[in-house]
Design a binder for these strands. Structure first.
Length: 231
DNA sequence: TAGGCCATCTGGTCCT
DNA sequence: AGGACCAGATGGCCTA
């Protein structure tokens, strides 16, 4: 089921723990006990929430524990986190499987298309797809078309919001609508019509021009990158 | 070689 | 109290 290539968790498990937190194998022992939560290593900087919060909280790994117990505790915590991230990656792979047909024409002479979708690209493409489905649904409603065997024109045409470069791709209502007045997320009552949908064309991932079929399909017109994941 | 992407470790915070 | 979640740090792999 793993559709990923060299970066899948299972294929990357062959590495070893490096002193400062590099690749780790599932069986690899934790590092030196001195690094187990006692702040010897550079570690993450004090984050904004934790900074200046008065007296130091007790260490997460209690000092009462002997080194072996600390090591075991740290091992369990690491294992849980690893498992959590692997589950997340499995979900990401499942999403990738669904989105891949819409992101790659599988043309072997277009290597920039044959690569696995990155996480960020997968999420953005999925989001764009959902928005597209919403607009298609809206058109069906407008035309009074029932769901019985009728597929929205835009979906049939395969006009997917293809990716250009990850980081630039947020598919906003601004970019979707010809009218650029609204900057708020789409509301059910203001879904764009297909006639209003407007795409950019001709540029493949990474910004290079490409003449393949997929690249000639419409692209999302994106806005400037903007802020990254505001908290 | 630089930059993108990723896995892992880690400590802090939130939640049950 | 323990687990889940989050984000920073680090280093490996890969590609342009």
């Amino acid at each position: 089921m793993n559709t990923s290539t060299s970066n899948s968790p299972s294929s990357r498990d062959s590495g070893f723990i490096t002193p400062l937190g590099g690749r780790a194998s599932q069986q690899a022992l934790p590092r030196d006990v001195s690094s187990l939560g006692m702040g010897l290593l550079p570690g993450p900087a004090v984050n904004a929430m934790g900074a200046g919060r008065g007296p130091q909280r007790p260490a997460k790994l209690p000092r009462e524990l002997n080194p072996e117990e600390q090591q075991e505790l740290r091992r369990r915590i690491n294992s849980r986190e690893r498992k959590r991230m692997q589950d997340l990656n499995m979900a990401m792979d499942a999403l990738r499987e669904v989105m891949m047909p819409y992101s790659s024409p599988a043309a072997q002479d277009h290597p920039h298309h044959s690569r696995r979708l990155s996480k960020i690209s997968t999420l953005i493409l999925a989001r764009n797809y959902i928005l597209l489905l919403g607009s298609s649904l809206q058109e069906m409603r407008r035309l009074g078309v029932g769901l019985g065997g009728v597929t929205p024109r835009l979906l049939l045409a395969g006009n997917w919001p293809f990716l250009t470069t990850p980081g630039q791709l947020l598919f906003t209502s601004d970019s979707l609508l010809t009218s650029t007045k609204s900057s708020v997320p789409l509301q059910p009552t203001e879904e764009p019509t297909l006639a209003q949908a407007q795409w950019s064309t001709g540029e493949g991932p990474g910004g290079q021009l490409c003449s393949c079929g997929a690249c000639k399909l419409p692209h999302v017109i994106h806005t400037s990158p903007g802020t990254r994941y505001p908290k």
